[in-house]
Design a protein around this nucleic acid. Sequence first.
DNA 1: TCGGTCACGTA
DNA 2: CGTACGTGACCGAG
Length: 580
Amino acid sequence: MGPPVEISELAALGIDEGALLAVAIDPGGALGLATVGGHRTVPTVDPVRELAAIEARWSPRLVWWDRSAADLVAAGGVPVARCWDVVAVHRLLVGGYRADAGRVWAHLHDLDPESMPTMGQLDLLQSADEGGDPADPVRPDGYLRPEWLAGAWRGDPGRTARWARLALETATAQQAIIADRTDADRVRATANAESMTELLCAELAVDGLPIDEGEAIRIIGEIAGPRPTAIADEERAQRRRDADVLRHLDAAGEANPVNLRNPAEVKAMLRRNGFDLPDTRAWRLEQLRDTSPLIDALLTWRKGERIATTYGYAWFDEHVSGGRLRGDWSSADGAAGRMTASAGLHNLPAPMRPAVAAEPGHRLVRADLGQIEPRVLAAVSGDPALIAATASDDLYRPVAERLGVERDVAKVAVLGALYGATTGESAGALRGLERSYPVAMAYLEESAKRGQRGEDLTTVGGRRIRTGSGSAPDGDLDRAIAAAAARGRYARNALIQGAAAEFFKMWALIVRRRSAPHGARVVLCLHDELLVHAPAGAATRVAQLVTDAVDEAAFYWSPDPAVRFVTDTSVVERWSDAKG
DNA sequence: TCGGTCACGTA
DNA sequence: CGTACGTGACCGAG
């Protein structure tokens, strides 16, 4: 480790608590810093450690271009409290999922992102033509140099500081845009949260989800059979699983073998056996389950096959190691801004969940937000009657009373309204909702209409939701109408789903910050559910702070303080010990 | 080897 | 033909 940087040197930059400090981390041995007071590069063999010292001393808001910096910070275990991720903020303000530093720059300087220079061979030749100073990150035509975007600023102190300064300027430009909006305070808060969520994602990817490997292997073995040591073994295990279905066909006099993994063959087979269906989806087959042992066997086979293939030995070998399941995390999907994760972290089947277990001496604090979407609808629409209903632990009960229907009918109706259902048993109750909760229903209707017209929408936190008909195939009229209707449903749901995602992120970030002093870490974010890995001795306190954090998140996020949000929190050894 | 379709897991 | 996502098997086009 090199000598620590003199505090006086950094003080000259004017680093302040909460003020922007842009950083460019060169793992090769330098830390670029930029504030409104100036910019410089600190040579150091461990730039992340240097950054940790600066963070601890001044608590600035760290500005960086993109996730690559967050990944380095997370890998180094630096407990950063505040940051501004230029690319993450861009995705919030502009929408869409294709975002990188070059695109953000082009967008802010009114340059066509389609004409962005790349590092292709032809462009290298053009780059010579194009001229300008390679030491200048900005080309004469205004675009950022692709070489710089690819990391050419590393290894040169002057360039590293320059790259940090450019990040600072870009972040400042974004903040100026936000400041001009009527919802500036709210959007600024969301931008901060989006940035920190990106860092949380980097931490989730580094930490991984605690897994009891022995239990995971046991569950896989129970469903898929023993671990195959040769291809022949694997085929034998497959045949063994298939046989449970195929024997029903032998009984029915079927001669030819059926490939159960081919939906077309399954459909034809079912037709031969008296079931003429448009497709072979589970919900359709489920209604016939009791009438036929063949269909019952097929559905059972499908369940097992899912675990055997998607969550079998290959999945385990690829994604589980050292007692942790690790995948890539993204802070905002392309649509409404929910978090996404790979490696099955967001779709682990219930039978696998006993394998998610706290490490020795630890507990899992598990919590989920109750009925988050209708509560969010109450908050963003301001519907007085629906807000009154949020006072209840079970929101669907007062709604059912008001509508004069059963509780489950009310639930289906509310969810149908949120998703844009037009048919089915909820249709009648839907009219009741329109009478009883006209403000909330009008909010949803208005969203749907704008979506149908292809207009962009904005969530309450300021996320731009694009519904533009960029992918409109516009064939015949029917297709166009169907596409518009689909956009309407999408828009109707996206404003709620997106706002719920904003609330959830606030909650998760508060939990992240308050958990740290207890040695606890957020290890899973699942749309409305959190798992926190905590030392056993601190688990009760962590559970309390997780619950309290819901109120704090509501205080920061909710447009209406009267809306009540609830959580179900428990301390468990295994994820499966508590149901959400 | 790719993209499209079906299917299904989670919220 | 209520929403969103990620993943795998299969098939047909290339």
